[in-house]
Design a binder for these strands. Structure first.
Lengths: 124, 124
DNA sequence: GCAATATATGACTACTTGCTCAGATGTTCA
DNA sequence: TGAACATCTGAGCAAGTAGTCATATATTGC
């Protein structure tokens, strides 16, 4: 609860005056630090797009090149390349170059597992 | 590979002509259906925002009311209410009303588990 | 009923995002 | 070297998103 309806009111110890101050203090204490939250949400955001999820799902069984992926997800190679760039920056995928062709694969098990979990949840 | 550089070319059987046609056909076959992808990404998108992740993280130990959550995440009660609305619609949280106060809690174990996984991944 | 309080909602805005298009980069092979 | 090909990249735009502010709704206690 707040004295001013729009802004919460802070008691001298930087602890909020609210309906359940103790619960708030406790929750704030166990909350992961900002850097961690940012990183986690960045990761989840990368998974939370249909095109990227399809790309990752396709890569979960085998490595594929850009134009393969383009055919799989049904989008232009440019669009896929843009998404792969983001996935690379977020270290969700790795790649190797073979001549003109670049093969992408999932970076680690963690990605595979979270992918599975999310898809399972969706099927319920 | 494509004959026209911008658009992939489709062979008569709705199978793409590409660098590795077999791999593409296989990948497309094992790709989860669109509805499933949409649902999964919708769920992940809800997790992939700092404010919502903090809200969910706070709720992972105990139920809290809107103004508690407002104090925890350091945003206006209105902003929190908007996010809770989305989380409710996505069935990530449940709530109970007690007089004027509405208590929110996580809907199921699945949410907790995925939350943990993502935070773990972030800490590496 | 009426004032006070807790929450919800609608309109608006600044920001982000995913695609397309055009063109750049890098690799192969004649 | 130069043409062909696979991929990458930057600009620009349409759609989506998260917050603020003002206001509506719902519940309590007088």
């Amino acid at each position: 609860m707040s004295i001013n309806p729009t802004k919460p009111t802070y008691a001298p110890g930087c602890e909020e005056t609210c309906v359940h101050p103790q619960a708030v203090v406790q929750a704030r204490a166990t909350l992961p630090d900002d850097a961690c939250v940012i990183q986690a949400t960045h990761f989840l955001k990368l998974l939370g797009d249909p095109t990227r999820l399809k790309i990752l799902s396709a890569l979960s069984s085998t490595e594929l090149c850009v134009c393969d992926l383009s055919a799989v997800v049904g989008l232009s190679e440019s669009a896929v390349s843009h998404q792969l760039r983001l996935l690379r920056a977020g270290r969700l995928v790795a790649f190797r170059r073979a001549g003109r062709v670049v093969y992408y694969r999932l970076q680690d098990e963690h990605v595979t597992r979270l992918l599975q979990s999310a898809l399972e949840h969706a099927r319920e």
